[in-house]
Design a protein around this nucleic acid. Structure first.
Lengths: 342, 342
DNA sequence: TTGTACGCGTTATCAG
DNA sequence: CTGATAACGCGTACAA
């Protein structure tokens, strides 16, 4: 007992003002940390606020300020862990602020996608949104945000937008380095499992592969390439194709970890030992990477850090608004790659 | 051009009222589909709304109605796919409504957890929240919601609360059935990897194991049991312990898929073939289940459907408020279980 | 440094 | 069936 029984009318700014014997504007100043305020009155008001358990009503604030404190995450990423990492990153940025995170998955393939997002933004009037890959690569979507006056920041693996609207990773270089690792182990015949068409990240990773192939003068050709769309199943199919080729590769680079797991699956079905008969390297460092056997050598995509920075850009435009914030990926050496046999 | 250039003042209810030559209350009635309204005036107003591209301001509505249209998801589940499935379930329930989903992960182990949630709820004044396992098992948390007047629904694997506040799965029975499957295959020596202390789901699953052991008169004892906390690593450790026992089990039941993957890992390290030398069965049907080799026989936990129903209960209390909504789990037969050798 | 009067966009009351 | 008027809780001019 003794505690404030919520349920009945929460105290408002007026209650605080009355109780403290000041005007509500003064209370408002206390809440908003106005600098021109007598320390004595501030303390007095703060005491009353604590006693009453007063918490400003965000809806009223939103109305008066004509902006709310909701930031949205718009995504259509198939990888659950990636999405959750992004959510974590955003939340770490808005912790101890009055912002909250609203999630909004969309269907990239739906013809109504843009209209859906538009309706969502018009209805909810968010403070701003974060666009995560691959939907972040859609320029029309960015234009809709612009048009509706909703702040936005895009996460991408290429320079999709101007600095204030972008947080970037360099997938191309990361893949090139991973490939150089395989080359250093002695591999020459390295195959590639591509990501889905229309994914900028997939394209960048492919370019990294090609860079390395060219630089090291490795063999190339259709027998050493397979399509995929970031799922385990397509990875398995790609593995089937690549491993049944007349001249089998000694290593396979896969555009993401899920597909790498599929390739591993295909190898195992053929009685191939990984990494002795076949080296496999992935991308993302998703949890699956550490959970399969052997643990997957891969590239960690610092998606949570990117999301955090993106959120900071959104809520505090002053925050390093200049540069595009480039996040390097990190190579993670585990057990799925080794020198080729013999 | 010609389209409404957002950016400049969006039309308000007043603009619509003026343009349509009615009072704003009438416009409000149109928006809220008041039944007592002349069809002619309704159509007239709707036409103006369309022409102006008017969209009601949710902040103003929230202030006037003294309730907003945000529902929160409070979770501390370590499994990304599970969390995302829950988000999907909720979103499918609120699609085409004015509700939006706010996510709020919490740290179960933090001593400030309750205070954090309380502060969050007081600040955001959500319409209601969904509590997902394992945090949903915390009765104090439910009490905080009650106290703050925030609607809540808990997802659980046991009867944690009254019908209006609960959506339930029957893990105990599901595990018992999975165990009966192993017994039918001819297994007698079946070990068990437990979930973390304090997880109701873990407890229920353990009870299902014990039910089956007792019913079939199987051997039991400390050598056939290992602790775990739902992570891959603890599953690996449990596998280490169980497989190094003097008399090795022919099958291991693991409380969730992640740990089952760990057990598989331990088996492989010992050169054991799964399922020939060892059968493994898990719980959840998380994506990892289908992605490891051999694909994991498991129990599908219908978490998205549960979340959907939970959300419906929240936003429409009339919706089947009576019964607790019990969701059966489904046994998924894949490749990780077979008759014991010899 | 503090207070007064008014506006933010919507809904509720109650009279017509 | 419709409309004037007052909330809802907070922020901002502008004045004191």
């Amino acid at each position: 007992m003794g505690a404030i029984t919520a349920r009945e009318a929460k105290p408002t700014i007026n209650d605080v003002a009355r109780e403290a014997g000041v005007s509500k504007k003064t209370v408002s100043r206390v809440i908003n940390r106005s600098p021109l305020l007598n320390d004595a009155t501030r303390e007095k008001v703060e005491k009353v606020i604590a006693a009453l358990g007063y918490v400003p009503n965000p809806q009223a604030r939103a109305l008066a300020l004509r902006r709310n404190f909701l930031i949205g995450l718009i995504h259509d990423n198939p990888n659950a862990q990636t999405v959750l990492n992004v959510q974590e990153g955003i939340l770490s940025a808005i912790r101890d602020t009055e912002f909250a995170l609203v999630v909004r998955p969309v269907n990239r393939r739906s013809p109504r996608m843009l209209d859906d997002v538009r309706a969502f933004l018009e209805q909810q009037r968010l403070f701003g949104v974060l666009l995560m890959p691959p939907i972040s690569e859609n320029d029309e979507l960015a234009r809709v945000c612009e048009e509706l006056g909703v702040g936005y920041v895009r996460m991408g693996s290429a320079q999709l937008d101007s600095g204030e609207h972008l947080v970037e990773s360099n997938d191309r270089e990361a893949v090139r380095k991973a490939m150089e690792y395989l080359v250093a182990l002695g591999h020459r015949r390295i195959a590639f499992v591509a990501g889905p068409e229309g994914f900028r990240s997939a394209r960048e990773r492919e370019l990294g592969y090609r860079d390395a192939v060219k630089a090291a003068g490795l063999p190339q050709g259709p027998e050493l390439e397979a399509a995929g769309n970031y799922t385990f199943e397509t990875g398995k199919l790609a593995g089937d194709k690549l491993l049944d080729a007349t001249e089998r590769p000694t290593a396979i680079y896969s555009c993401n970890d899920e597909m790498a797991a599929g390739v591993l699956h295909a190898a195992r079905e053929r009685g191939l030992s990984v990494p002795d008969d076949l080296s496999i390297v992935g991308f993302d460092d998703s949890p699956i990477a550490a959970h399969i056997w052997p643990p997957l050598t891969t590239v960690r995509w610092p998606v949570a850090a990117m999301a955090r920075t993106a959120a900071l850009k959104l809520i505090d435009p002053g925050h390093a608004s200049g540069q595009p914030a480039l996040f390097p990926s990190i190579f993670i050496e585990r057990g799925s790659a080794a020198p080729p046999r013999r």
